[in-house]
Amino acid sequence: MSVTGPSSLNSLSLQLYSVRNALDEDLAGTLARVAEIGYQQVECSYKLFSRGPEVASALRDSGLSVATFTSSLVDTDHEAIFAAAVSLGATAVIDTYIPEEFWTSEEDVDRIAGHLNRAAVGAAAHGLRVGYHNHWWELERQFAGKSALELLVDKVRPEVVLEIDAYWVAVGGADPVAVVRNFGDRVRFLHLKDGPISRDNLEQRPAGQGRLPIDAILAAAPQVEVGAVEFDEYDGDIFEGIAASHAFLSQRLPGAAV
């Protein structure tokens, strides 16, 4: 039996990586604080889930549902990952990090697409979708006149979806509004942070406090199911940061308000 239910359309979530240090110190207390801020959903990783059954229990006790689940899908035990995702009620498993050194050629893109395609077939048997989340290098790297991310989308199965990190798109030199619009229905999830458009993670800011055109991005992607607040790092109190993002985005995602 799943712990949680599926996410609602146009809803707001929190990528729990943002509060990873607090989770290490106090799992239950951190999740309770996330819920107190107003979040109803989170994005949970297989790494966190693997800490043990206390994770599912703490999520249940906090009232947080799991909108999306993240894990590497390259050379991993897909069955264990998919079983974990189903147990938490997630509808998609997203590979959120294939390092820059693995994107050096079209052949690299072919290999990555192959991994995602195999995962997608296995995921479907569990009622799940597979997705991919970008960083800047998939936009910055160009092959045959296309970005590596565009080539990847050309090569993966049609049911493979995207979780677009709009900030990293901009850091990679692309227009996030155009990218979201051009990929259309492939974009089912967003990561939303803000800042000066810099690779320095400590410069990341809450949504609405930087240069990212968040309103235009959301307008370009009405099909997006969940927008997830995320900070890779934060130079301040992370709970204040995720609260500021929630306050800004809950006015823009109709399913987010409490």
Rank of each mutant, 00 (worst) to 15 (best):
A247M: 09
I242D: 05
R252K: 14
V161H: 03
S72E: 04
G173T: 02
S7I: 12
E159M: 06
G5R: 15
T104M: 14
K47S: 13
F239W: 10
S250D: 02
G145R: 08
A247F: 11
A166M: 14
G122S: 12
Q223S: 10
F248M: 05
L218T: 07
A207K: 06
E140I: 00
D95L: 01
R20E: 09
G89R: 01
T4C: 15
A244N: 00
A256R: 01
A56I: 03
D175F: 06
E225K: 09
E140V: 01
K47D: 13
S50A: 14
E159G: 02
D185C: 03
V258R: 15
I94W: 06
Q142A: 10
R111G: 13
A207Y: 09
V93R: 03
V224T: 13
V229C: 11
A125R: 15
F143A: 04
N201Q: 10
T30P: 05
W136H: 14
T68R: 07
A92N: 13
D61H: 06
D175W: 08
D110I: 07
Q40L: 13
E163T: 08
V153N: 07
E138Y: 05
R205E: 12
A123P: 06
A123G: 05
R199Y: 01
T91Y: 05
A257Y: 01
G38Q: 06
W137V: 10
P53L: 05
S13R: 02
S105A: 10
P158H: 03
T4F: 13
I214N: 10
D165V: 04
M1L: 12
G131T: 03
R252C: 01
V160D: 10
K193F: 04
G5K: 14
I37T: 07
